[in-house]
């Protein structure tokens, strides 16, 4: 059985790939740069003696990433888990982005997960597999920054609901994690209100819950309270927080 990690070369994706390999899982790793993929695959094979296949894919430009992944899966055991810890944000995502730049953000954060799920859904139904989506605390409430990014991440909430609504419990597991600040390249150097969480600390829990039902939850869990507070702010107060 194969687990697919899209966005595997960095941050949470890399931590998930490592945790899955530690548990002996056959892996298909997808990321944009073949150099990183080859290095990661070699490392996991050496340390954990697992079968690891790779696929270099630029999700910002690839028209049909699902088809490419399906083709790569042909030589591997059937897929049981699809994890999509993929994301791109920009400092200038504040209504000033060009159409092309906005399109790239949407392609990576929304279109790629949607297209990949669409392509793999029949196989995952057959194995009663798990789809894991990753939202963001940035989507808790719209603001003047992270405009396209947050819109795409909130769209994933709808995608999560659609998948769950369309499948009977047990036929397909659909899990959504709304991530708080993680210590990754996206947050390195940013002034954060509190310390970011090491992806390696949350990856084991995500892997442990594969195949164990459908749900949406905040991760780390304390962000549930943060999101509740953000959503509870009256509109006039929220507006005053704009920078």
């Amino acid at each position: 059985m194969t687990a697919i990690v899209v966005g595997a070369s960095s941050g949470l994706g890399r931590a998930l790939a490592d945790e899955l390999a530690r548990r002996g899982q056959v892996l298909l790793l997808v990321a944009s740069d073949a150099r990183d993929l080859h290095a990661l695959a070699a490392d996991l094979q050496l340390r954990h003696e697992v079968e690891v296949a790779t696929l270099a894919l630029d999700l910002g430009r690839e028209v049909d990433p699902g088809a490419r992944i399906l083709a790569a899966l042909a030589a591997l055991p059937p897929p049981t888990s699809l994890l999509l810890p993929v994301g791109l944000s920009r400092r200038d995502d504040d209504f000033t982005l060009s159409a092309g730049a906005s399109g790239e953000l949407l392609a990576i954060n929304l279109h790629a997960p949607l297209a990949i799920i669409g392509a793999l859904l029949p196989s995952l139904r057959e194995t009663r597999g798990t789809i894991v989506l990753f939202g963001s605390i940035a989507a808790a409430r719209g603001r003047g920054q992270n405009v396209a990014y947050a819109a795409a991440k909130r769209a994933l909430e709808s995608l999560h609901e659609s998948l769950r609504q369309a499948h009977a419990p047990g036929a397909l597991h659909v899990q959504l994690y709304r991530l708080g600040f993680l210590a990754t390249n996206l947050t390195f150097g940013m002034a954060l209100p509190w310390a970011a969480t090491d992806p390696a600390r949350i990856a084991p829990g995500i892997v442990r819950r594969l195949g164990k039902g459908s749900f949406a939850r905040h991760l780390p869990r304390r962000y549930a309270l943060v999101a509740l507070l953000l959503r509870s702010l009256p509109w006039f107060a929220w507006r005053r927080l704009r920078r």
Binding site: R91, D92, L186, F188
Partner: peptide
Amino acid sequence: EPRGLAVG
């Protein structure tokens, strides 16, 4: 600058 250059 795109985020993710990991400079701080």
